[in-house]
Amino acid sequence: MTMLAAPASTTASPSATIGALKRHFRDAAWSMRVPRSTQELLLSIPAASSHLTQLLGRPPTSVELADHLRVSVDVLLAAVAAAQVYRLPSLNEPVVGHTTAARMDLIGAVDPNNTSIDDHLALASLVAALPPRERRIVTMRFCDEMTQERIAAEIGISQVHVSRLLRQAFAQLRVGLLASADTPAVEGPPYARR
């Protein structure tokens, strides 16, 4: 005679359902992936802040709150920043303070500095390829914003020689930039024509 096992319950227990819902909201409700430790810290901040406010008689500072939660200030601030990605705002949502503008209307302009990124990258390698003295003079002139007279005094050559070396360096840089960009030759900037 064999005994049959009792059929398993087909209904979920309340604790299993609540646990499944908590896991779902913890893992799927965020707009971006946020580590679980950050999510848990974020949930404990309001209670800790309320507790410290009652103890101190004033709102706690970030340092006091971080000490109370036994985390660093950076971790605390990262958790607070993570709260902003729980629900990202819609691009079609009206912006507070504007009567007709949607968020999409206020973002997305082309950054005018984007066009010069390639030139800056190419120029950096071309400056690095200059002979050491010319590289130093160019750096002193444009990074340190020194005058030709001051460069001449520091290096121990005449101002005329500094001007000549700058002109040579500009010519070499111009040739290198034009070769890398395949653009028509243009006259150098006004500061190069001294």
Results as ranks from 00 to 15, higher is better:
Ser180Ile: 01
Ala171Glu: 12
Leu52Gln: 12
Met32Arg: 14
Ile107Cys: 05
Ala12Lys: 02
Ala128Glu: 15
Arg141Phe: 11
Ile137Gly: 05
Ser158Ala: 06
Ala102Leu: 12
Arg33Ser: 07
Pro14Ala: 00
Asp182Trp: 10
Leu76Met: 08
Leu77Phe: 09
Ala171Pro: 00
Asp74Met: 06
Val160Gly: 14
Gly19Asp: 03
Ile151Glu: 08
Gln168Ser: 13
Ala6His: 09
Glu149Lys: 12
Gln148Val: 00
Gly97Leu: 02
Pro59Ala: 13
Met1Asp: 14
Ala82Glu: 10
Ala179Val: 04
Ala153Met: 08
Ala78Phe: 09
Asn114Asp: 14
Leu55Val: 06
Gly57Gln: 08
Ala102Gln: 15
Ser90Met: 07
Glu187Met: 05
Met140Ile: 01
Glu40Gln: 13
Arg141Gln: 11
Val34Asp: 07
Gly108Lys: 12
Val138Gln: 07
Pro46Ile: 01
Pro189Thr: 05
Thr139Lys: 07
Ile117His: 10
Ala122Ser: 10
Pro190Met: 03
Thr38Pro: 10
Ala181Leu: 09
Pro46Leu: 02
Asn113Met: 09
Val175His: 06
Pro190Asn: 06
Ser49Pro: 01
Pro184Gln: 11
Gln39Met: 12
Ala66Lys: 14
Arg135Trp: 08
Ile117Arg: 12
Ser37Lys: 11
Lys22Trp: 14
Asp105Phe: 06
Arg135Met: 02
Asp67Gln: 15
Gly19Val: 00
Val75Arg: 15
Arg136Gly: 01
Ala109Gly: 10
Ala179Asn: 14
Arg164Ile: 01
Thr147Asp: 13
Ala102Gly: 06
Ala109Leu: 10
Ala5Pro: 13
Arg193Lys: 09
Lys22Ile: 03
Gly156Leu: 02
Pro89Val: 04
Val85Arg: 11
Thr99Ser: 14
Glu134Phe: 02
Pro46Met: 02
Val34Asn: 06
Gln148Asp: 10
Pro189His: 15
Leu121Ala: 12
